[in-house]
Amino acid sequence: MSFDVDAAHGRPPTIMEAGTVLPPIAHTITQAGIDAYAEASGDHNPIHVDPTFATAVGLPGTIAHGMLSLGLLASTVDRWVGAWGRVSALSCRFAGLVRPGDQLICRGVVRSVSADGRTMTLTLEGVTGAGVRALTHAEATVEATAPPGERPAGSHGD
């Protein structure tokens, strides 16, 4: 089973079938972005927002929330599949630190597509531009919400 992802903005379609490597999307991590996530999520742990505190507890400085990185990974999946479906399950291991100034590069491969074409599983990872494997053992399940027969029409992101 496969899908045509009708990429927006004139980009060529991507066939999504088991083994398809999805186009990586990079997210820039900034302290302002971390602060905004802290405010939106309610997680004000000072290791994320207070450089002095972060250093005092042995960190190299503030670090992004693991859940911010996972949220960015989820948004990447959303860009790949668009309104065709929604993430119904998501998991990962937080294996490395993501810091202000890093790029978090989200990658994915289609692991399987159900016989009825309504469910996809993706294997994912998040790696910083410096090569730190920040999100490992990551997986997502995407369930179709579009009518049967309709193909994903997501964007590759911009």
Binding site: G66, V87, S88, A89, S91, C92, R93, F94
Partner: peptide, 14 residues
């Protein structure tokens, strides 16, 4: 001990 705490893994089902 929060300063020594690491969020190791996370999973969701929606």
């Amino acid at each position: 001990d929060l300063p020594r705490l690491v969020h190791g893994e996370q999973a969701f089902t929606i």
